[in-house]
Each structure stands twice: as C-alpha cells, then as structure tokens.
Design a protein around this nucleic acid. Structure first.
Lengths: 197, 197
DNA sequence: CGTAGACATGTGCGTGCGCACACACTCCAA
DNA sequence: TTGGAGTGTGTGCGCACGCACATGTCTACG
C-alpha cells in the first residue's frame, strides 16, 4: 500500500529531525563530543589498528568524503586522532584514533546508548526495534546502495527515473537541470564506483 | 538488547544520509521542487483551507520554525504559496498554498512516491514497512516529543543530564507546548487542529 | 486607561555541509 | 624514461540551517 510507504518515510524523516539534535546536544554537553566526531571515532575504532584512509572513513561514516578531512583536523586539534602518512602510497592519508580518543569514546558510549534507548528504541517494543534494524539494514545493503557520494547515486538513478514516471509524463519543469547533470555524468565523473566487501 | 538498539539507530542515520539526497535531487531535477518545499507545501495542503500560521507550519513540517519564514518567501517568489495576514491577530502571518502550488504538488507526488518505493520501502517486505511505520510513529507520539525546536528540548535535558547519566524527564517539553496550544485554542484558533484524514 | 509581560514573526550571523576544482602522487604504455 | 590517464586528498565557495536578538502585537493586571 502506498500509504504505508509514505507514512514510513515521513516518520523516518521526522524521527531523524526530532532525535538527532537531542542526541547531538546531549553528547556534546555531557562529553564535549559532537555526533559527527563520535561517528568518525567509532569507525576508526572499528577499523583494524584503529586506522583508516580518508576515503574509507568517508564511505563508512555518515559524513561526506570531503568533510572527513576537516573533521579529522578538528579531532587532531582535540588530540583524539592523529594523521599518518602511508609510505606505500603517499597520496593517501590515514587517520588513527589515539588513546585519548578511545577514552573519550568509552566515556561517551553509555551516554549515547542511553540516549538512543530513551529517545528511540525505548519507545517501541523490542520486537519492533529488531524489525526496524533488520529492515533498515536491508535498505542499506540493497544494490542501489553505493559507497559513492549521494550525487553519483542520484545521477545513476536519474537515467532510469528522471523522465519516465510510472503512468505520468509531466516532466516539463526539470528538463534543463536533468540534462545538465546527465551531461556531467557522461563526462566521466562517476569514477567513484566501488564495491563494499 | 543494546546491540539491537545501536544497530537500529545507526541504520536509521545511514538510511537518512543515503536516501534523502537521492530523493531531494530527483525531486528537484524532475519537478524543480526541493524536498523542503515539498514538505511545506504538503503540510499546507493538508491544512484546512490550505492555510497555516508560521508557527504551526514550523511545528508540523520538518523545517525549523525560523526557517519556515525564508522557505515561505521562496515559495511566494515561485508563486506556489501566498502570505496572508490574520485580521484577528496581526502578529501571526498565514501561509496559503496557491493553485499553482497544488498543481506542482500533484506533479511531484508520483515522483516522490516512486522514489520512496524505489529507494526505501521497496527494499523491505511490506510487513517490515508496516512495522517500521508503526514503530517510528510511536516514537514521534511519545511524551518526550515536543513541537518546540530541538534546542529547547535539549536545554531542558541539559540541566538534568549535563554530566551524569540522565534521570528522568518527559514532562517539561510537552508541557509548555500543550500550554501554549491550550491558550491558542481558548482564543479560538484551534480549528487548525487536524487528524490525518 | 495604561503599562508590563507573553507571544508570533522576521532577520543578522555563525556553523556545518557538500560540490567543483586544484594539487600530489601512482601506474601504465610507448 | 617520459608523458598522460587514473586516483586520493585538501580547499574555496556557496547554500541550508538554526540560534540570539529585535520588532510589532495581544493579553492581563494595576
């Protein structure tokens, strides 16, 4: 039923808008750790040796690839991460979590978890939470999901969906914009394609 | 289980980060309608007479209250909405959807719905979609949820949760919002109240 | 009737974010 | 060896967002 679809999507948007600022501020005032920092540090901690290249970090964390560079700068200033150069490939820069970073993460984790339970999963049944987790992860692992930035994904889809709509053809307005962007894609900038192992 | 909690939350963050830009760009290139515009127009359309005060609009739409003002300006420039003054209360400004706005919404709706199904609900089973919708709506309707901006909610928490792990809350936020609305209702403006038809 | 407080809204401003571009480096073929 | 294509990263810039404050208006109380 299409009503269920829009309801689910609208609810996701609103939950995100309502809960994210709460958790962000809670984490920031309690631990001095913005949500972005937490996310980046968490991904670093998950990685082997606590190190990750900028590209990998940008793909795994919620922040965009280009933004990672500045976030890591902030983390370095705060002493929570360190930059390392890769001798094998001097283009790539690695970010590594420091002991202080691990410590801050340990302090922040219970605060974060408590906030998640208090403002999110605690407001539904455990069964619902399980289904939500499973369903959303299926969305992430779907074939449409690519590690590239949102622009590329949009462009890839665009060729299929932009003009032709199921049972409707009033696409007058966005014609020129669509053409412009498709042209850029054809110029060969969708090289960010990658497989997630 | 706490693992389920963090998994569900992380998945929500990632789905949001992955899908929102796609839908935004699709909608924008196909219909010239940013997601924010769509959301605001949709709330206006749901409202009786297609009119809503700025405050109500900010509470119902995903955009913040202060941002609504500028978004409505853009919509007015685009001819999709109109500003109206309330003779009864000259503080409040109303935004009303125009015929052109309704038309654009009709054009955009199938595109949006298709995007939602293609990139979100279509990637899970209908049963899962139903559960996701129900669970997330329960989160929204929970007592901690207030129509006020995120800052207020966070600040109210802050006094209690600053350093230590939180005790309890869940009354303050909804309290003042309810009080405000009760006052407005007494003034005779509660005809804006709506149930999802 | 007049003043103080509450309230709805608009605006200046700083911040976070991502795209387009530039740069440095690697790899490969001629 | 050398030049060009491919790739990883950092940065200038503009845009969206939300908070603090200012403005105009209504309400309650003396």
């Amino acid at each position: 039923m299409s009503d269920t679809d829009t309801t689910a999507w609208a609810a996701l948007l609103r939950v995100h808008a309502a809960v994210v600022p709460v958790l962000d501020r809670t984490l920031q005032s309690a631990c001095g750790l913005p949500l972005t920092w937490y996310d980046v540090l968490l991904e670093l901690r998950h990685a082997p040796d606590g190190r990750l290249s900028m590209g990998e970090l940008g793909e795994r964390a919620v922040v965009s690839r280009t933004r990672v560079s500045r976030v890591v700068d902030q983390l370095v200033d705060a002493g929570l991460a360190a930059r390392e150069t890769n001798p094998d490939d001097r283009r790539s820069a690695h970010a590594a979590i420091t002991d202080a970073g691990r410590q801050r993460l340990r302090e922040a984790a219970p605060v974060y978890l408590d906030g998640i339970q208090r403002h999110f999963t605690g407001l539904m049944t455990p069964q619902e939470a399980t289904v939500v987790a499973r369903a959303l992860e299926k969305v992430l692992r779907s074939p449409g999901r690519s590690a590239a930035g949102p622009l590329q994904k949009a462009l890839e889809r665009q060729g299929e969906t932009a003009v032709v709509l199921p049972g409707d053809e009033k696409t007058a307005a966005g014609h020129e914009a669509a053409g412009r962007e498709r042209r850029r894609a054809a110029r060969g900038e969708n090289r960010l394609r990658r497989e997630t192992p």
